[in-house]
Measured scan of single mutants.
Amino acid sequence: HNLTITQGKLFFHYNPKLCLSEIHKMEEVSGTKGRQERNDIALKTNGDQASCENELLKFSYIRTSFDKILLRWEPYWPPDFRDLLGFMLFYKEAPYQNVTEFDGQDACGSNSWTVVDIDPPLRSNDPKSQNHPGWLMRGLKPWTQYAIFVKTLVTFSDERRTYGAKSDIIYVQTDATNPSVPLDPISVSNSSSQIILKWKPPSDPNGNITHYLVFWERQAEDSELFELDYCLKGLKLPSRTWSPPFESEDSQKHNQSEYEDSAGECCSCPKTDSQILKELEESSFRKTFEDYLHNVVFVPRKTSSGTGAEDPRPSRKRRSLGDVGNVTVAVPTVAAFPNTSSTSVPTSPEEHRPFEKVVNKESLVISGLRHFTGYRIELQACNQDTPEERCSVAAYVSARTMPEAKADDIVGPVTHEIFENNVVHLMWQEPKEPNGLIVLYEVSYRRYGDEELHLCVSRKHFALERGCRLRGLSPGNYSVRIRATSLAGNGSWTEPTYFYVTDYLDVPSNIA
């Protein structure tokens, strides 16, 4: 807008934040220059609390790290170098490059900038070799853009010569660093050979998330399962459950009422301010606690030095998902009996873990797994792929695949051998790939016309006998059925096997 004052003059007093240069501009645009008398524009009460600059400061050096910015700028000295009290560095987070010096300023003089007072450097006698002032900004957020400017702080001049310097606002972004852990990993099994893994992005990506790394490792069953005799009275049979499938998407929606109208769909109840505040506090606490764990609990591995020492970490090797089922080394339970199943799973520490690289999504279907087997899954978020990966501390989750139908069934015939004193040795093959492992066998036998009897055969007993022995049988026709019990439950009964026990007292003698 054009402003013209045809008559009258300007009068400025007691404006401590208004620089004289701005008042002189007002004289020019209003056409009143030359009308004012000496005392109409006070030299001592206008701009006496402001830094009124008329020179431009330029930054000469900028260096960044993930949490620091090192700045240096060209030296500046007023005509009387004693008038320079120091520099004021202003900075704040700036997602967009549209910041002005006066953003967030209120009537009390406060604003949204963080201000650092910096002492002037030592003055050199040689004007050509003056030290460049600077400042190291610490405690910054990774991968965050900051708006920065600097200006001088000078003393009051009796001659009211307006001098000083100020830089333009520059924008500097800190470097990326390792992201925080992925949030809320959930693993479920939808079949006997697959596990579905879902997660949420890290709360602090500290860069642009480029991919996720998912490692999985087959877990050995508890050692007590191999040692305890679950045929003993009072000892509860062990059981394991597989990871249940995901709930429906509708039930997972946030901010939804727990109660549904019987007449149909209901609208979600909005969260109160107290609920939102509580969630923010919980989120802040979780982030602080995660940072504490990362800094205190997890110790970084030592990389190899120039002395030739090897990095103890196993090298990563990509495998196809079809090879995942046989990740671990199978060892027989008892070496003397080769027909026992290889369900003991000690994992070799030198073995390469299978892994998958996930790009542009937060889910993965891990296939080719062994049925009813526990897996430990390790999830890392990465925001750099080359020249070397920059990934987060791992988040861990466990899951067990679903049982395989008929995996616990005894394959092959049940054979028998009759000894003296009416002892019958029953023999059968253990299931080759049971659900988890076989903890015991149930032997059901009966003599024709009598009630059915049951015998429990422990895992250890089966390994020693290759089956079991029935003792003290009365003469007669017998039928026997056997079924295995694994961590997933009972298998199917075998087809009945028949044998006849004679009275050993009636056996004919070869003595003449």
Rank of each mutant, 00 (worst) to 15 (best):
A484Q: 04
H461T: 11
L440V: 05
F246W: 09
E495Q: 09
R313Y: 04
E260C: 07
E350K: 14
D506W: 12
F419R: 11
S392M: 00
A394M: 11
N255G: 13
V423G: 15
K278L: 05
S479Q: 12
E260Y: 15
A381L: 00
L470G: 00
M427C: 14
K432N: 13
K233A: 10
E279R: 02
M402D: 09
H294S: 15
Y292A: 03
T333A: 13
T210R: 10
V345T: 06
S444F: 15
A330D: 11
N295K: 12
H211E: 15
T210K: 01
T340A: 07
I410V: 13
G234C: 08
H294E: 01
E282Y: 15
F285G: 02
T303D: 15
E282M: 07
G489S: 08
D409I: 10
L321H: 08
P349L: 09
T497E: 08
P387S: 07
G234W: 06
G306P: 08
P434T: 06
F298G: 02
A309F: 04
Q275S: 04
K317N: 07
V501R: 05
P475E: 12
P300E: 06
V297C: 06
P338A: 08
E420K: 12
W493V: 06
K302L: 11
C269F: 04
T241L: 11
S474F: 14
T386V: 12
A335T: 11
T373L: 07
H371N: 08
E282L: 07
F215L: 10
G412L: 11
P244A: 13
I377D: 01
L364E: 15
S268E: 14
N383R: 04
R471F: 04
R218M: 15
L505W: 10
W242K: 08
K278R: 05
K236L: 09
Y445Q: 02
H352F: 09
G322F: 02
R353D: 15
R319H: 12
T401Q: 01
T241S: 06
H425Q: 13
C269W: 02
H352Q: 10
V443Q: 00
L473S: 02
R286H: 05
P354K: 13
D250K: 03
F462R: 13
N421H: 10
F226W: 04
F372S: 05
R469F: 11
K432I: 15
S486R: 02
S315G: 11
L225I: 08
E417Q: 11
G476R: 01
I276C: 14
Y500A: 11
R447G: 02
V327D: 12
L440G: 03
E495V: 10
